[in-house]
Structures are given as C-alpha cells and as structure tokens.
C-alpha cells in the first residue's frame, strides 16, 4: 500500500533524553563480538584521547531506529514487511559514556521503487545541551505484497 506522501518533510518532536551508560556500551560491544578495550576500559579510552569509554560506530542505531516517526498509523507503514535498505552515520564525535542524547527525526523522502515503498529518515542526534554528535540516515523499504 502506498505510504502517505503528506509525511514527506515532516519532523517529529525530540525524543526523551537517553543517558548513555558504560554498561550499555559494553553490552552493545559484547553483542557485536568486539573486544576493543576502548569500549570497556576508561583508561584505554583516555589513552586514545577520549574523556571516557566511547561507543562502537553503529551504536547510535540503539536510539535512532525511527520510533515515533514510523509508528504513526496515518503513515500507513506495514512493519511486518519492512526491511532495512541503507544506513549511514555522519559523526561529529563518537558517542561516549555519560552523554545525554536527544534525537530529532525528519522524513526526508518517500517514493515507490517497483512494488516497494522506500522511506528515508534523517535523525539529528545531539546532547541535551544541543551539542551535535551524529547524524543518522536511515532508508527502510516496505516490501510490496
């Protein structure tokens, strides 16, 4: 079913602030099987020039999956038919333990590709104080029946 084109350009309210903990970063690093000490050990992170442990490059997906932007029934997205098409992160700096982050998502494009619907989202990830940290670009595809 075609997605509602009225959503192109729509921005969603900022998410609740998310506090990044060392434990969550370690859990994520364990889940991707990456033993890098910079994700676990504050001293190792400091030796690499960081104030605290940093998160792996794909960690921002934890807080930028799209959430409320995709959940609005008016958009018409059938989540069971959704696959991830593309993902990109532009980093101002790595996410690190202690960050309190807020996401603001905009639907930048909706178009048909054959039987599929393609939805592009841009999420600005900033600290609660407004310091830009990362921009996430997420393309999802709703497979046609």
């Amino acid at each position: 079913m075609p997605l509602n084109r009225d959503f192109i350009g729509r921005s969603f309210p900022p998410t609740e602030p998310y506090e990044v903990s060392r434990v969550k970063i370690r859990e994520f690093a364990d889940a991707i099987g990456d033993p890098n000490p910079i994700y676990r050990d504050r001293e190792a992170a400091k030796a690499a020039g960081h104030p605290d442990v940093v998160a792996p490059p794909t960690f921002p997906i934890v807080i930028s999956l799209g959430g409320s932007a995709m959940a609005d029934p008016e958009l018409g997205l059938n989540y069971a038919m959704v696959v991830h098409g593309e993902q990109r992160f532009e980093y101002v700096r790595p996410v690190r333990a202690g960050d309190v982050l807020v996401c603001e998502t905009t639907i930048t494009e909706i178009r048909s590709i054959g039987n599929n619907e393609k939805l592009e989202l841009r999420t600005e990830i900033k600290t609660a104080e407004g310091e830009p940290v990362c921009t996430a670009y997420n393309t999802i595809v709703e497979r046609g029946a």
Partner: peptide, 11 residues
C-alpha cells in the same frame, strides 16, 4: 573508533 567520521552501507 573515534577516527571514524562517516560510515554508510547498503544492505
């Protein structure tokens, strides 16, 4: 890991 400034893929 802090040296990565941009990372994108298509699945």
């Amino acid at each position: 890991p802090g040296a990565v400034v941009d990372y994108g893929v298509r699945f």
